[in-house]
Design a protein around this nucleic acid. Structure first.
Length: 395
RNA sequence: GCCAGGAUGGCGGAGUGGCCAAUCGCAACAGACUGUAAAUCUGUCGCCCGUUCGGGCUGCCUAGGUUCGAAUCCUAGUCCUGGCACCA
């Protein structure tokens, strides 16, 4: 499989207008070989500061283009964020100041660096051009679109049918995004499939105003560890900042059906390696082994090989062999006469005494590997465990 | 501006004077089973006290009030939504 093919298929859900035209464009030559430098960008919303491996999917794609030497822009939608998209949230969404946005970006960048080489991309803010538009300009831009297109969107249609509010400004979203694309004279836009409509606006402007064909590469979504959509509220996300042991554990608890898509979307494994993973899966090899490979690889890429080895060791020791003595866990200083209940609460493993009581009844608490059912005294050296994953070490 | 509807636990959503710490679904947590899987089954799921059983406190947007008793009724307020009207 060649580079271009991988670029066009890996993690890609949809290419607009079509894959073949884009292939031709990309095969016309790389910048390194005096080919044309294409303008490629990915826009992000600066209100989010925590990145999970699903967010990282388009970042990886952007990085791939950057490595080829194209003119790649990482666009921060600071202006669009100032307006505030109320489409799915409470309208109480706070408006961010530009300082907050800059700050958020620093946090964001620290995480994104794990998958994107910022030395090879240009970072821009869309307020740069959007804030200077005059009302007359905006009206003119709006003439390229019809309300029908907007209303026809499934989500909007549904909201209208349900009598829910659809803010007028929401119609301007695609216009703004399209203008971003036009202003940067974009050849290729990247984004999730949920952004397809908004990205289309960019194609309209490029075509109408520059008579130029531009492309959209929409990436697919990475499911959460339980197979549902990855989201903070579902608590099924793997964050780029997750600690090695945590990350390893989360990957191990993945549904088997997700193994291949994680290798494809959440690692840099080559297409060949992914093929061999598929073979191993169909050969009835224990998927657990593949998950160990996957977990090791992800921790290596996002942290380091040494930490990945350590995490794997710990996993095998603690969870597979049941050796809790050497677990790495949060610690709490044992004071004289400290009770189990107090230890767990001050160690913030549980919220309340009632909860401890319930857990005791459910035989969920172990003290040094022995199930305890009554509140007891604890002392330095003890290791407390709740369920499978929560530990507290007393020192 | 007018009219109408609404605000309940992490979310969705019941409940319209005592049987309500509040049906139910989702999420979460624990147990069994396992590969720490997934799926499934079981239990738990405001806080505090006493070992079961129970007792106390806080709680249904906010502030007051009526009542022996309020998530439920009344008054005022805040916010949200829809419809209608108006628009030099």
């Amino acid at each position: 499989m060649d580079n271009v093919e991988e670029l066009l298929t890996r993690g890609v859900e949809n290419i607009i207008p079509n894959k073949e035209k884009l292939r031709k464009l990309l095969e016309s030559g790389l910048p390194a070989q005096a080919g044309k430098k294409l303008n490629i960008y990915l826009g992000i919303d600066p209100t989010a500061t925590q990145i999970h491996i699903g967010h990282a999917v388009p970042l990886r794609k952007l990085n791939a283009f950057a490595q080829l030497g194209h003119n790649v822009t990482f666009l921060i939608g600071d202006f669009t964020a100032l307006i505030g998209d109320t489409s799915d949230k409470d309208s109480e969404r706070p408006v961010l100041t530009s300082e907050q946005i800059k700050e958020n970006f620093q946090t964001y960048k620290k995480q994104a660096e794990k998958v994107l080489d910022f030395s090879k991309v240009k970072v821009r803010f869309n307020s740069e051009w959007l804030k200077d538009l005059k009302f007359a300009d905006i009206v003119k831009l709006c003439q390229h679109f019809s309300a029908g297109d907007f209303v026809g969107r499934e989500l909007i249609k549904k909201r209208l049918q349900e009598g829910k509010k659809v803010g007028l400004h929401e119609l301007l979203y695609p216009v703004m995004q399209g203008y971003d694309s036009y202003f940067m004279d974009t050849d290729i836009q990247l984004g999730g499939t949920d952004q397809t409509f908004n990205m289309q606006a960019g194609r309209v402007f490029q075509k109408d105003l520059r008579n130029k064909e531009s492309f959209i590469i929409a990436n697919g979504f990475l499911d959460g560890t339980d197979g549902r959509k990855m989201s903070k509220t579902w608590n099924n996300a793997i964050w780029l900042t997750d600690e090695p042991n945590d990350m390893f554990g989360k990957v191990m608890s993945l549904s088997d059906t997700l193994i291949v898509s994680y290798f494809t979307l959440a690692t840099n494994a080559s297409i060949d390696e992914i093929e061999s993973v598929k073979k191993r899966l169909s050969s009835k090899e224990n998927p657990m082994k593949l998950k160990i490979d996957l977990a090791h690889r992800m921790v290596t890429e996002l942290h380091s090989k040494a930490l990945a080895n350590a995490a794997q060791n710990e996993f095998e020791r603690v969870h597979q062999k049941g050796d809790t003595q050497s677990v790495s866990a949060p610690t709490l200083k044992a004071t004289a006469g400290l009770t189990l209940t107090d230890a767990l609460i001050t160690g913030s493993l549980v919220q309340s005494k009632s909860e401890v009581k319930r857990l005791l009844q459910q035989k969920a608490i172990e003290q040094n590997g022995v199930v305890v059912t009554n509140d007891t005294k604890v002392s330095a050296g003890d290791i407390l465990r709740i369920g499978k994953k929560k530990f507290l070490k007393l020192v």
